[in-house]
Amino acid sequence: MKSHPLRMFLAGAALLASGFATAETPADFLTRYQTEARQSTPGFSASAERGEKFFTATHGGEWSCSTCHTKNPAARGKHASTGKAIEPMAPAANPERLASTRSVEKWFGRNCKDVLGRTCTPAEKADVVAWLMNSPR
């Protein structure tokens, strides 16, 4: 295992690099999803009001986003089946939100499937991000 120390070093360097790459702001996500949405809908502009409606509505299934996250993005939520506490979604109330692509994409990916039975569109994500960013502490 001669390559081991080197591999460890490279893994460490990669970890550091990914750490820096994920230092993102909520505005980055708004811009990104809005830009993606404009590819199919030119002139699209994110709306916090649409985001709130989307977040609190059921979409043909049993759950809405707010079933677990509550209708207040600044409040703590509770997982619908396990009861485990979920920290607030609004970046103003929880600075860990909308701060890493890996995390944001992972949770949109999982939770959109649970609530809508499909992936969310860039327009839907932009609206939700706009609403979460609007929320006071």
């Binding site: 089946s81 992972k106 990916g109 999982r110 939770n111 499937k113 649970d114």
Partner: peptide, 12 residues
């Protein structure tokens, strides 16, 4: 994990 006790818990 994509069907994890009624939730999608997918990982890369």
């Amino acid at each position: 994990l994509d069907k994890h006790f009624g939730s999608d818990a997918s990982l890369d």
